[in-house]
Amino acid sequence: MDSYTGFSQHCLVWNLASLHNDTTSNYFHGEHAMIDAKEIKNDMPVITTGAEQFAEVDHLVGPDVIKLKKDASGTHHYIPLSWVISTEGGRVKVNRTLSQVKEDWGADEAACQVTAARH
């Protein structure tokens, strides 16, 4: 998997883990339990490990992908549910810094499924 970077690498692991009912799909960041998708609601703020809000939830796309509301440039971004480490306080907290989020998030929900299907 060394040839994969950023979002594609995380999605591949998370999709493979889902196929095997593995709850350790956060392989790259050491988390061992996934948040139940039912805990994530539309309009919830999404924050980094440093408590910086970078987006709001638009809605869930299937059981494993969160679509974020459009940013200032009018673009939707997508993040895997496997990044979520908490929904306490009505906020979705991810296991990333702001710079990591911006490097790793996807521009469409199909990116993860396409990457997993090819490899």
Rank of each mutant, 00 (worst) to 15 (best):
residue 59 H to T: 07
residue 75 T to D: 14
residue 70 K to Q: 06
residue 58 D to L: 02
residue 6 G to F: 03
residue 25 S to A: 10
residue 87 T to G: 05
residue 101 V to M: 08
residue 17 A to W: 05
residue 2 D to C: 00
residue 11 C to G: 15
residue 44 M to V: 08
residue 50 G to H: 01
residue 4 Y to G: 04
residue 27 Y to R: 02
residue 117 A to E: 05
residue 16 L to N: 13
residue 23 T to C: 04
residue 101 V to L: 08
residue 46 V to S: 04
residue 22 D to I: 08
residue 98 L to T: 03
residue 32 H to S: 00
residue 89 G to M: 10
residue 1 M to P: 04
residue 114 V to D: 08
residue 55 A to W: 07
residue 93 K to C: 05
residue 98 L to G: 02
residue 59 H to Y: 09
residue 38 K to N: 14
residue 77 H to C: 03
residue 98 L to I: 05
residue 23 T to Y: 05
residue 115 T to G: 03
residue 98 L to K: 04
residue 57 V to K: 06
residue 33 A to G: 00
residue 113 Q to F: 11
residue 116 A to N: 09
residue 85 I to M: 02
residue 103 E to L: 09
residue 28 F to T: 04
residue 11 C to V: 13
residue 56 E to N: 10
residue 69 K to L: 03
residue 50 G to Y: 00
residue 64 D to L: 15
residue 1 M to L: 09
residue 6 G to E: 05
residue 17 A to S: 14
residue 63 P to W: 07
residue 93 K to D: 02
residue 21 N to D: 14
residue 41 K to S: 14
residue 40 I to M: 15
residue 76 H to P: 02
residue 60 L to S: 12
residue 103 E to V: 02
residue 13 V to G: 05
residue 54 F to S: 09
residue 51 A to L: 03
residue 87 T to M: 08
residue 75 T to V: 07
residue 29 H to E: 08
residue 110 A to I: 12
residue 112 C to A: 15
residue 117 A to D: 09
residue 81 L to S: 08
residue 87 T to P: 11
residue 75 T to E: 12
residue 87 T to S: 07
residue 98 L to P: 01
residue 112 C to N: 10
residue 74 G to C: 02
residue 36 D to G: 11
residue 48 T to I: 01
residue 115 T to S: 10
residue 2 D to V: 04
residue 83 W to S: 07
residue 67 K to F: 01
residue 106 G to A: 15
residue 14 W to E: 15
residue 5 T to I: 03
residue 102 K to Y: 14
residue 92 V to C: 11
residue 118 R to E: 05
residue 29 H to K: 11
residue 27 Y to M: 01
residue 53 Q to K: 15
residue 109 E to M: 13
residue 53 Q to V: 14
residue 47 I to V: 15
residue 54 F to D: 10
residue 96 R to W: 08
residue 95 N to W: 00
residue 56 E to H: 08
residue 69 K to S: 00
residue 62 G to K: 13
residue 34 M to W: 07
residue 92 V to K: 09
residue 2 D to E: 13
residue 97 T to A: 02
residue 4 Y to H: 11
residue 58 D to T: 00
residue 80 P to K: 04
residue 70 K to L: 02
residue 35 I to R: 08
residue 73 S to K: 13
residue 112 C to Q: 12
residue 82 S to P: 00
residue 102 K to M: 12
residue 86 S to A: 06
residue 18 S to I: 03
residue 91 R to D: 01
residue 85 I to W: 00
residue 40 I to F: 14
residue 26 N to G: 13
residue 86 S to D: 03
residue 52 E to T: 09
residue 7 F to D: 02
residue 51 A to W: 04
residue 29 H to P: 00
residue 107 A to L: 14
residue 115 T to M: 09
